[in-house]
Amino acid sequence: MKREQLTILYDGQCPLCVKEMRHLMKADSQHKIQLADINAPDFTTRFPEVSHQAAMSKLHGYLEDQSSKTLVTGLDVTYHAWRLVGKGWLIAPLRWPVIKVIADYCYLKFAKNRFTLSRWLTGQSRCQSCSIDR
């Protein structure tokens, strides 16, 4: 059986993004998910093929098994993350052909406006010292 892992390149200054990563970490009992903050000083060194601007515009991740490493983006990252922790069925409908087009469009709008949405929903648009504990 393949041992899959996912490295998620997330925005550690976005309160909603951090909240989602916290939920994932709590559900990830088998440690299949690794996180990399796109604002870390070593981000461009560790992930030179993903520009900071591209990472700010939508979620990126690396899905890996013993034989391959694939770059995935947007809601595909979210789907694989929740699938790896056993809850992929919750988001699977967003990957169905007709719904996928609409969901991806909505996701891009969300990603572009996430700091405003964070301010409305959490009271802060950016984190100054957000942390994610496993």
Rank of each mutant, 00 (worst) to 15 (best):
M1L: 09
M1S: 12
M1Q: 08
M1P: 03
R3Y: 10
R3P: 05
Q5I: 10
L6I: 06
T7M: 13
I8D: 09
I8Q: 07
L9N: 11
D11S: 14
D11M: 13
G12Q: 13
G12T: 06
C14N: 13
L16W: 10
L16I: 13
K19N: 08
K19F: 03
E20K: 11
E20M: 05
R22L: 02
R22G: 01
R22P: 00
R22C: 09
K26P: 00
K26N: 13
D28N: 12
S29C: 09
Q30M: 14
Q30N: 11
H31Q: 15
K32F: 06
K32Y: 08
L35H: 15
A36P: 10
A36Y: 14
A36M: 15
D37Y: 12
N39D: 10
A40N: 02
A40V: 08
A40R: 05
P41E: 05
D42K: 07
D42R: 04
F43Y: 10
F47R: 03
P48K: 02
E49L: 03
E49K: 05
S51V: 04
S51H: 04
Q53L: 09
A54G: 01
A55F: 05
A55E: 04
A55Q: 07
M56Q: 12
S57R: 09
K58H: 06
K58P: 00
K58C: 00
L59I: 00
H60I: 04
H60R: 02
H60C: 07
G61D: 08
G61L: 01
Y62G: 01
E64A: 11
E64F: 00
Q66H: 05
Q66M: 06
S67M: 02
S68I: 01
T70F: 01
L71F: 04
L71M: 09
L71V: 05
G74C: 01
G74M: 02
G74F: 01
L75S: 04
V77M: 14
V77L: 15
Y79E: 11
Y79C: 08
A81H: 05
W82N: 03
W82G: 07
R83I: 00
V85W: 07
G86Y: 14
G86M: 15
K87S: 09
K87G: 12
I91V: 15
I91R: 03
P93I: 02
L94M: 13
W96M: 07
V101D: 13
V101A: 12
I102L: 06
D104Q: 07
Y105A: 10
Y107L: 12
K109I: 10
F110P: 05
A111N: 07
A111D: 05
R114G: 11
R119S: 14
W120P: 00
L121S: 12
T122R: 11
G123D: 01
G123A: 02
G123E: 07
Q124A: 08
Q124K: 13
S125W: 09
S125Y: 11
C127R: 02
Q128I: 00
Q128L: 05
S129E: 03
S129I: 00
C130L: 01
S131H: 11
S131M: 02
I132E: 14
